[in-house]
């Protein structure tokens, strides 16, 4: 269960990274590029999602470390 949880989190995180990288080398055709539409607000969204995901990964890793100590 725990391994499953971690890998899912990592996949989500990787997904966010891929979106942001994709935004940088996307074609110049602005009308079909989601990340460049609407005043580039989606770039900010990707940043916020990355921060929230990173924060949760950090808290999760502390949680795991404490659980390990508790089980000793």
């Amino acid at each position: 269960m725990k391994k499953y949880f971690k890998s899912l989190l990592l996949i989500l995180f990787a997904h966010v990274c891929v979106i942001s990288v994709h935004a940088q080398d996307a074609a110049a055709n602005a009308s079909t590029d989601v990340m460049r539409s609407n005043g580039k607000i989606y770039v900010v969204m990707a940043v916020v999602v990355t921060i929230v995901t990173g924060l949760f990964l950090y808290v999760y890793s502390i949680d795991k470390k404490i659980s390990k100590l508790e089980n000793k």
């Binding site: 269960m1 725990k2 969204m45 916020v48 929230v52 995901t53 949760f56």
Partner: peptide, 24 residues
């Protein structure tokens, strides 16, 4: 407090907030 489900709820709600919060 060691259960995982409500931690998942927190994560999903905040991801939802930080995505839909920009689109709504």
């Amino acid at each position: 407090i060691r259960k995982a489900w409500w931690k998942w709820v927190a994560f999903l709600l905040l991801i939802y907030t930080s995505i839909y919060g920009f689109i709504v």
